[in-house]
Design a protein around this nucleic acid. Structure first.
Length: 940
RNA sequence: AGGCGCGUAGCUCAGUGGGAGAGCGCUACCUUGACACGGUAGAGGUCAGGGGUUCGAAACCCCUCGUGCCUACCA
């Protein structure tokens, strides 16, 4: 005898079943499964992260797909893992250290990294735990970390190969720099924000004192590094001045007035200061005009010696104030205006970005991007919804080379060594590369001299990266020596044998390693069984905010190194916002914690809600009320199960198909509705329409199975004796329950498992049963059922609207239009009575309305409920008039349509037929109601 | 500045050319032998506004208003 607990209590069942699944290895791929491999790699959450709504939605969708495919018989693998998240993690640990009063510099690189690993060991598993809480069926035995040994090997391999092909190079140019994180950032890692600032108009005197030119700038402090002023060549105001020299205020330097078409004559004064070392536009202009670059801001955001003695060492914001004050004093500040413009901020710490001239490593991106675009154009990878395709193309077309070096410690250290001693130009390369850097004494502008030494020593002496590079000699490496001792750490310079070699201190952008995720997690560079089986992966599930950061780069790397796209489909889901539609963020304090939701409502209800919210192409506003509603749904399922179990004694477990002839209409109907739902759910999941899939199973279970079928079966089930009929109905109940549980399992894994084990198979999991597919429909039964539903609805409607007390015994007379409908109703007389709480019902084609009866006109029948004396005639008249009004409105609409010759000529036949039939029905109905109304009126 | 999206019931949202739907909320009635986390019956909408295409538009096109996001080197 099966027994489930009286009350549905998610807490009690969820952890228990998860442990069972994991211990039994149900999450591992079954290589013997009949259908094709199905693989998903999880977007690796940051180790620093804790589960937020976005992760929850993301994981739920992947788990639904994974469980569904597993049940359908695919070889399913879902690989989990985490990302080392370079800057983010380093910042977290640095903050921890600063509480102890230690800086990472004081600790030293090695000790610091060790400290991060310790931190990771302690807190890094948190998010994995949380993923388990929501039921994610990942194969944890294959869990990866972007900084683990295997992935590090993949990273190094990719770096070296790209380097050998000339696709990785080093260059000295402007880069987005975060003075707080003290590192370079890629274009993507800069977030632009509209900021209210000021536009300053500054007078630059002509060197011959014959006048002046006024420039407009938002960043007066950078003027100290100006090397020209530019105007548009067409600008008539400046024709006479082009080519003349100006005297740069506060410095006395002479700079030229140049003409460049990039200057917008309409903006400001039409004259723009040019600072090639601190502005991307100016850098380009500087290159065109061969202007020198003067760096006046250093890597920590302070002014350099180049800025002049007065400003040296000042913070850039202090320097701005000082420059403004000084200009005012000189009478050169003409005007200040309010001005809003976009200012770049570091995506990790919100500090204002500083464009700085530094040497960095870059990936040449153009050819890689072209292939990635082609792959989508040719449909080798589909992006769903496809509205994202254009964004993808646009971004790929405008893409700049990818800056991959970061001046932090936590990450994949760049596999490049430098030899300060080696004089042999052919020197080097290690798993890599060695470049000779500054072996000559370097004279600096401030008068100091640096006597060579290693790169690290110079950094320690207080020199900036850029300074060192600028003053050093970089030697190009001949191609033939590029690939050398690839995978080992380099100890000795292969060129000169020196052991005094230094590794490049920079690490790679976090996204460099995650770009390899779809194949590195499967074992690449080794051609493992997993890699052979599961690459390309089936679908990548992600939010749009990392489409460029991650998806685009995976596309490029996958195509480059595997020769095929990394995934067949990319499903882009919504961002979860709060109830007001705002992005959830800690600073706004509007974050909804998924774990609290799980505590309150259970993981099943939570998952189901997320699925039901996940309409394509639209953001989700999270609503706790709806979540509550879906918990009620699971509770409903639970209670329905209790009801069904009570009849277990009559369950013969015979198959329901094969004896359709003996089945009653309702049973055939529910089987047919089930078949319809199964088809819909499968189709919707196939198309990533999770909300539609969730809604259709919800509607079926609640409003068809529970509301109708369960109620209908009661009239048979409550009979004392055991009959064949009773057995059939019970078998049908159990069958539909079983299929419903399976249908629901990908959405609601825990409760379905609990119920399944209790009823159908205590020894085996529902996880590995077959997903319902292609059941037979019984269209005729569905049509016949309409008659029964109409009769019930008609009687209920009268009861409800006339407010007839349920305790009042009533009877009903049903005049049917055809014998067939009469037969159907007669067969289900007991049901009809029970559902309408009617004592007695007469059915026939010749039934007459008795005086004092309320009337309901339904398709195929008229229903009379005699309530002599009790009939509130006015209420009944009102009710019927309301119905008449509705009918008249519809008739008016149809009339217009059917009298329109264009409609008759052009509309498709089916539409025409349908409308005609509808019209006839309405006319008939109208006639009947009119008749009744006139009768009622004669009474009053 | 460009690009993308959204505006449908009180709220949150489905609905990609044939008479407006769901969940929650609301109203009335009901402790009927699974479930009050329930049942039954209801109320509630010029589908933002204007123009166009069409026999027919919430849906397709154009414009306006409102709103959200993405991209960008506007000094």
């Amino acid at each position: 005898m099966s027994a489930i607990k009286q009350n549905y209590n998610p807490e009690e069942i969820e952890d228990r079943w998860y442990a069972v699944w994991e211990q039994n290895g149900y999450f591992k791929p079954d290589f013997k499964a009949p259908k094709s491999p199905f693989c998903i790699v999880i977007p690796p959450p940051n180790v620093t992260g804790s589960l937020h709504m976005g992760h929850a939605l993301n994981a739920t969708i992947q788990d639904i797909l994974t469980r569904w495919r597993r049940m359908k018989g695919h070889k399913v693998l879902w690989i989990p893992g985490t990302d080392h998240a370079g800057i983010a993690t380093q910042n977290v640990v640095e903050r921890e250290l600063s509480k102890e009063g230690v800086s990472r510099q004081e600790l030293g690189r090695e000790a610091f990294i060790e400290r991060v690993w310790t931190w990771k060991a302690e807190y890094g598993g948190r998010i994995i735990h949380q993923l388990k809480k929501i039921g994610a069926s990942c194969d944890w035995s294959r869990e990866r970390f972007t900084l683990d040994e295997g992935l590090s090997r993949a990273v190094k391999e990719v770096f070296v190969r790209l380097y050998d092909e000339g696709l990785i190079y080093r260059d000295n140019r402007l880069i987005n720099w975060c003075p707080r994180c003290h590192t370079a950032l890629s274009d993507l890692e800069v977030e632009h924000e509209e900021t209210e600032g000021r536009l300053y108009f500054i007078k630059y005197p002509l060197a011959d004192h014959s006048g002046s030119v006024t420039v407009a700038t938002t960043r007066p402090e950078t003027m100290l590094g100006d090397t020209a002023v530019a105007v548009n060549p067409e600008d008539e105001r400046y024709q006479q001045l082009i080519g003349k020299e100006l005297e740069l205020p506060l410095t006395g330097r002479k700079i030229p007035l140049i003409a460049d078409p990039a200057v917008d004559a309409a903006f400001g004064t039409g004259a723009v200061k040019v600072t090639p070392a601190h502005d991307f536009n100016d850098e380009a202009m500087g290159k065109r005009h061969k202007l020198p670059s003067i760096s006046v801001i250093s890597e920590d955001g302070r002014m350099t010696v180049e800025a002049g003695e007065k400003y040296k060492g000042m913070d850039r914001s202090a320097a701005r104030k000082a420059v403004i004050a000084d200009l005012k004093e000189l009478g050169l500040m003409v005007e200040e205006k309010k001005h809003t413009h976009a200012v770049g901020h570091c995506y990790r710490c919100r500090t204002v970005i500083e464009p700085l001239l530094t040497i960095q490593w870059y990936v040449k991106i153009k050819t890689l991007a072209e292939d990635a675009v082609k792959a989508v154009q040719e449909g080798r990878t589909r992006i769903i919804p496809d509205s994202w395709e254009n964004n993808y193309y646009a971004w790929m077309r405008d893409i700049n080379d990818w800056c991959i070096s970061r001046q932090i410690w936590w990450g994949h250290q760049i596999p490049v060594w430098y030899c300060p001693e080696c004089k042999n130009d052919k020197g080097i390369v290690q798993g890599s590369i060695i470049e000779h850097i500054f072996h000559k004494p370097v004279a600096l502008k401030d008068g100091r001299t640096v006597n060579g030494g290693t790169y690290a020593e110079l950094r320690a002496a207080g020199l900036g990266h850029a300074e060192i590079i600028k003053n050093s000699k970089v030697i190009r490496i001949p191609r033939e020596v590029k690939s050398f001792c690839r995978r080992e750490e380099l100890k000795v310079c292969p060129g000169c044998g020196s052991t005094n070699i230094i590794r490049d201190p920079d690490v790679l952008d976090t996204w460099f390693s995650s770009a390899l995720w779809p194949f590195s997690t499967l074992g690449w560079p080794d051609m493992t069984e997993d890699l052979k089986t599961f690459y390309p992966t089936s679908v990548l599930v992600t939010a749009f905010d990392i489409l460029f950061f991650w998806v685009a780069r995976m596309m490029m790397m996958g195509i480059k190194f595997m020769g095929d796209v990394p995934f067949r489909d990319v499903y882009i889901h919504a961002i979860v916002r709060d109830a007001k539609g705002q992005k959830m963020s800690k600073s706004k304090g509007n974050v909804v914690d998924p774990l609290i939701m799980i505590d309150k409502y259970g993981a099943d209800a939570f998952r189901f809600s997320l699925a039901a919210f996940a309409a394509q192409g639209r953001d989700i506003r999270f609503s706790e009320e709806r979540l509550e509603g879906y918990r009620h749904f699971i509770n409903k399922l639970w209670n329905a199960t209790k009801f069904i179990i009570r009849n277990e004694a009559f369950w013969t477990k015979e198959p329901v198909y094969g004896q359709e002839k003996n089945l009653d209409i309702a049973s055939k109907w529910i089987l047919s509705r089930l078949a319809y739902t199964v088809e819909e759910v499968n189709r919707n999941l196939e198309n990533y329409r999770f909300n539609d899939a969730a809604n259709s199973v919800y509607h079926f279970i609640w409003h068809e199975f529970c509301d109708w079928y369960l109620e209908i079966t009661k009239s048979v089930l409550y009979q004392e004796e055991t009959t064949k009929e009773k057995n059939l109905v019970v078998n049908c109940l159990f069958f539909v329950l079983e299929k419903s549980l399976q249908l629901l399992h990908p959405f609601v894994p825990f409760a379905t498992e609990e119920i399944w084990r209790n009823i159908f198979d205590p020894e085996h999991t529902i996880m590995l049963t077959s997903y319902p597919e292609e059941l037979p429909r019984f269209i005729e039964a569905e049509k016949d059922m309409e008659a029964l539903l109409n009769a019930v609805n008609g009687i209920r409607s009268i009861r409800g609207e006339l407010n007839i007390a349920p305790s009042l015994d009533i009877r009903a007379d049903v005049k049917v239009d055809s014998k067939k409908i009469g037969e159907i109703l007669k067969q289900n007389l007991a049901v009809l009575k029970k559902l309408t709480r009617t004592k007695d019902i007469t059915i026939g084609t010749d039934v007459q309305r008795v005086k004092g009866s309320a009337v309901s006109v339904q398709d195929g029948m008229e229903i009379y409920i005699p309530i002599e004396g009790l009939l509130d005639v006015r209420a009944e008249v009102g009710r019927l008039q309301k119905e008449m009004a509705k009918i008249d409105e519809s008739l008016g609409f149809l009339n217009k349509k059917l009298q329109n010759e264009d409609f008759l000529r052009n509309a498709p036949k089916q539409v025409l037929e349908k409308d005609k039939a509808k019209y006839d029905d309405l006319i008939a109905k109208k006639g009947k109601i009119e008749e009744t109304l006139s009768l009622l009126k004669t009474i009053t």
